[in-house]
Amino acid sequence: MPTQVQGVIARSKDAPVELTTIVIPDPGPGEVVVDVQACGVCHTDMHYRDGGINDDFPFLLGHEAAGVVSEVGEGVTDVVVGDYVILNWRAVCGQCRACLRGRPWYCFDTHNARQKMTLLDGTELSPALGIGAFAEKTLVAQGQCTKVDPAAAPEVAGLLGCGVMAGIGAAINTGGVTRGDTVAVFGCGGVGDAAIVGSRLAGAAKIIAVDIDDRKLTTAREMGATHTVNSKETDAVEAIRALTGGFGVDVAIEAVGRPETYEQAFYARDLAGVVVLVGVPNPTMEITLPMIEVFGRGGALKSSWYGDCLPSRDFPMLIDLHTQGRIDLAAFVTERIGIGDVEAAFEKMHRGDVLRSVVMIGAPA
């Protein structure tokens, strides 16, 4: 029978979020119900609330989540009841032209649960990034569940579901950072700091963090940055060149999604260097670059989709590295909050007071 649970919704543009009762249908073919244990508060959820993604209100917010499978529908083979999983928003299809060419991280036909979760009056909810995990339970497609080692706490594991994976993957998967490279990361929020962690993991020799907030730069050093630049006080491109013998970096990662920081990243790279855009711009933003500079500098200008990750490959690997003590995913968790505290968490995020607030929902004591 359908289940009634508490969930956090955005009912209309710019309105405060609400904690209300939602209805979770029984899982259909290929669908899974997950008991959510923890879910990170991501900028993307705030963008949904503010109407910055689309206008398919009401939204069921939350997507950086970990939990336990409680029900499975017909034909589900990837997971079983009791599996501890991280949720992801790019369940690969296995049949599109990208998947068939052996590049499933570029899947052009990712999918979600077919059924809709609803309010008590039957109003259909749009789950954020196809997940909707600021709720005691959520309904997803089986491909959105990746089984991982339950030794990792849910507030830590869930963050791989979006921001942390996006940043680590932007460095390793998209940027191809490797031993001895120099790297600059523009924007030191959760994604930028994860790019720093990924660069350090890959063996970068020099990691330069760029931001306008000294608090964030301090955290970036704690995450592994070897140098910091406050671009509010110093020309970031000149500072980066000074730190790299006048050449610029091998990989420049833009984790803000703004034209001015993208331009800084473009000019801060060495010849044949790589620029990676992982920050998400809004649809109105544009940038103009001299074509002779694009040609003359060579290298590559790349966009990173979800860190170009393959959840079935990358989530278990990163959880294993965490449990081995080789990366500290817990460092991203600033505070643990209740399901009724999401709106306050958005305000803290907007002020830059937190790296990640994590909603604790059904985590074991």
Results as ranks from 00 to 15, higher is better:
153 A>H: 09
155 E>K: 03
134 F>T: 01
135 A>V: 08
131 I>K: 10
140 V>F: 05
138 T>Q: 02
156 V>W: 04
150 P>T: 07
152 A>R: 04
148 V>N: 05
148 V>R: 01
137 K>R: 15
137 K>L: 08
132 G>M: 10
136 E>N: 04
135 A>S: 15
137 K>Y: 01
131 I>D: 03
153 A>S: 15
128 A>F: 13
155 E>A: 09
142 Q>M: 05
127 P>V: 04
134 F>C: 01
129 L>S: 14
156 V>R: 00
140 V>I: 14
134 F>K: 00
130 G>P: 11
148 V>L: 06
147 K>G: 01
137 K>E: 12
127 P>L: 10
128 A>K: 08
154 P>C: 08
143 G>M: 10
129 L>M: 15
145 C>T: 11
140 V>P: 03
136 E>H: 12
128 A>W: 13
154 P>M: 07
154 P>R: 06
137 K>N: 05
142 Q>P: 06
140 V>G: 08
141 A>Y: 13
143 G>D: 02
130 G>D: 14
143 G>A: 06
150 P>N: 11
129 L>W: 05
138 T>K: 01
157 A>E: 03
156 V>N: 00
139 L>S: 03
151 A>V: 14
147 K>L: 12
153 A>D: 13
147 K>Q: 12
149 D>V: 05
138 T>W: 05
157 A>L: 01
129 L>Q: 12
129 L>F: 13
130 G>F: 12
142 Q>H: 02
156 V>E: 02
157 A>T: 07
155 E>I: 09
129 L>K: 11
137 K>G: 00
155 E>G: 07
139 L>Q: 08
127 P>A: 04
154 P>Q: 02
150 P>C: 07
134 F>D: 05
142 Q>Y: 04
145 C>A: 11
157 A>M: 10
140 V>Q: 02
144 Q>F: 10
140 V>R: 03
140 V>C: 05
150 P>M: 06
145 C>F: 09
149 D>Q: 00
130 G>A: 13
144 Q>W: 09
142 Q>A: 14
138 T>L: 00
133 A>Q: 02
146 T>F: 10
130 G>L: 10
129 L>A: 15
134 F>H: 06
138 T>M: 09
145 C>R: 05
147 K>I: 14
149 D>T: 05
145 C>G: 04
153 A>C: 08
146 T>Y: 08
139 L>K: 09
148 V>E: 03
147 K>H: 11
151 A>L: 13
155 E>W: 15
134 F>L: 05
136 E>F: 06
154 P>W: 07
130 G>V: 08
150 P>V: 11
146 T>K: 02
157 A>F: 04
131 I>H: 05
137 K>F: 01
144 Q>I: 07
141 A>I: 13
